[in-house]
Structures are given as structure tokens and as C-alpha cells.
Design a binder for these strands. Sequence first.
DNA 1: TATCAGTCAATATC
DNA 2: GATATTGACTGATA
Length: 460
Amino acid sequence: MSSSESVKSLTELVQQPCPAIETSKEGKPPEPSDPPASDSQPTTPLPLSGHSALSIQELVAMSPELDTYGITKRVKEVLTDNNLGQRLFGETILGLTQGSVSDLLARPKPWHKLSLKGREPFVRMQLWLNDPNNVEKLMDMKRMEKKAYMKRRHSSVSDSQPCEPPSVGIDYSQGASPQPQHQLKKPRVVLAPEEKEALKRAYQQKPYPSPKTIEELATQLNLKTSTVINWFHNYRSRIRRELFIEEIQAGSQGQAGASDSPSARSSRAAPSSEGDSCDGVEATDAEEPGGNIVATKSQGGLAEVAAAPADREEATQPAEKAKAQPLCSGTPGQDDGEDASRPRPLPEGLADAPAPVPSLAAPAAGEDAATSATAPAPATEAPGAARAGPAERSSALPSTSAPANAPARRPSSLQSLFGLPEAAGARDNLVRKKKAANLNSIIHRLEKAASREEPIEWEF
DNA sequence: TATCAGTCAATATC
DNA sequence: GATATTGACTGATA
């Protein structure tokens, strides 16, 4: 009951105009920081008015599994249909910056892979979608912003003061030091294509390089070790994310075709079906990093890969490939394009770009095997596994999917709150089916590859 | 301590 | 100008 209560209050909130927005935007103490700042706090549900501050968190906690992909899709539609920008939407509704919104909309992670915090934006989006006045409100915000902007502009002009960009309030200015700190700002590091290429190659060989390796890479590329470390972190997580997406997309596509014929499904899944050879399904397989499905399955066939000491590598490799491909195909052209900007000798092995296809077997470098070994591949990645390896997901979905037929753990009211169609359960099943189909095709290909004994071939 | 998730914010691209 | 990309940072977790 309590849950439905809060749900109710939330529903109300959703219905009512979101004042929070106004506060943050309108008064616009051009504080770009205000929304996020407060937001990051557990107490900050910007779009929701004060009294319900806690609700969003509660909601997130109690919310049923949401279709993140579907939500973002709808949000994108609404935004584009109404010509509403990501920035406005992000800052007023989600309390996130434009970049984050872009990222979120373009690469939503599956619900079960999200942490509580990560789910928050999706719950907000869902609530927003449920709000019949959502668009109007945003439109209003847009107008208000415009007005405010004009106002500022006018005043500044009249003052003949080269007022700095309105909202781009330099936080430095007001805060602590009166000095022109902007100067102290670290310049953003921009890696040259060759550097990225080299890092990618390094990644292919060791997704989890040892400190020593990192050091070497940094030295040879003339980068800071922290930059190299960050790069690896970012690359790993982004690849992982891509895989989620592809998984979903492949799934939905597969479904489309699969719905009628299984064969269609498999064909679509077909590797290069993508045409691009680059990303595509590849990723799908790779997806296993999240779950180990492939690992398990593949192990049989992809022995070599699996054999590699570094499970993690194994796990990531495919993904890597997905990513790597582009390199191959893409680089050729500009590849030579030097970046005179920064001369740096690429590490051997990394440098020989010629070989676009990284040798999976390359594990030669044992030293790091240890490193990677440290973290049991699937284990680590287990996040996915733990939460729901593809395998699980497809069949025995953990808690998430269970709901469908399982004893409804959530009060239906919640579902309505989130605007879950009555068919939520059905959709759930659908999604599961898609995933299962996707997995099947993956397995199929893996087996095929395995039987062929083509070590590297399976990079699709 | 290493890695991850989530995010910001600068920069690139459309 | 809006959106996408990406290096860096923070906090959480194992």
C-alpha cells in the first residue's frame, strides 16, 4: 500500500507543472552548476517539486523493469517532433548536461544493468512521458529561456559590458579565487588518431594492461599515464555499452524478421549482415562480455580465444574487434594522415598498423596475463553475468523479467504510474524473446566458427 | 587498490 | 546552434 501511495503522490507530481525547473532555469543565476549540483545529491529531484523530493528515489527503487530503449526512443521522438533540444530537456527534466543526455538517449543501457543512480534518468523520462503536459512545459521553459536570454543580452549590451555568455557562468568567477583562473584550467587532451589507434591495438592485446604496460604506452605515446589509464577505462566501458545497444538492436531487428521466420533471424544476425563488417553483430557476440553466454558456448569452439589466459581479454576481444574493425576500414584512408601535431613513435607491435586484424592469439605477452587474470573475466564482467547474463536473461530472467508471469511483485499501480501498458508483461516477453533469438544466432555463429576452427575468423 | 558506473564539460561534427 | 564524441573526474564496490 505504501508503495502505491508514493506512486500516487508521484503521479500527482507528474501531473503538475514542474516548478523546479523554473527555479533552476528561470531565475537562471546562470548557474550551470545548480541543476547538476543539486541533482547529484540524493535528495534532488529537480523536476519534481520539493515536497516530493524523496519520491524519485523511492520510485527508482520500486519501479518495475523499464524498457530503457523504448523510453529513450520515445523521448527522442517527442523531442524531435517538438523541436525541443537535448540541453533543455536534460537540464530541466533530468538535471543532466546536454552531453549526458545525448549519450543516454543514444546508448541507453538495459535496465538490469543500471545502478539505482543510473536508473534515475530513465524513471524521470518515463514520468515525463507520462505527463500529458510534458511538451507544453518544456516549450514554456524554452520560451522563458529565450526571454531571459534576450533580457540579459539587452542589459549587457546597454551596459556595454561584454558580458560573458549568459549561462556559461564560469563557476570560477564567482567562487573562491578572484583570479582569472580560467587560465589554470587544464587543457583538454585530444588524442591523435594514431594515438588512439595505438591504444586500441594495445587494448586488443591487453584490455587490462598492467601498470607497467601502461607506463610504457604512456611513454611511447608521449602521454600521461593517467591519460592512458583513463583511456582504457573509458574504452572498456564504452565498448561494453555499445554492445548493450547492439544487443538490443540486433534483438529487435531479429525480432522483426524473426517473428515470422527463424531463418530470417539467423541470417540477419549474420555477421556482416551489417554490411559494414565493422560493428554490427559483431558486437552482439561481444556482448557476452556482459554475460558469459558466449564464453560458455564459445569455449568449445573458440578454444583459442578462450584458451588465452586472460579471460578478460577473451571476453573483451570480440568487442574489441567490433571496435577494431572500424579502424581497419576507416583508417586506411586517413591513416597516414599524420598528425604532425604530435610526433610520437608508436610502440612496436602497436605501430605496425598494417595488420588491421589484431591477432587474438597474441597473448604472447604473458606478463599481463597475470594482470588480467587477476580478475576472472566473466567474473568481473559478471556484473552482467551476475545481474543477468544473456543466458539468464533469455530464459530465466532474473527478477526483472520474472515479473511477467511471476507473482506480480509490484502493485499494478506502479505499472500504471510508469505508464506501462497493460501489455507490459507481454512486451517483456517479447523482449526476452528477442534476446533469446539474438543469443541463438550468436551461439549459432560461434559454433559455426568453432567448427571451422577459424581462430580469428569470428571477428566477423 | 583496481575497476566500474555515471557524469561533466570541452571539443568535434553535422 | 544542436548534437555527438570523448578525456577526465567522482563515488561506489569488490
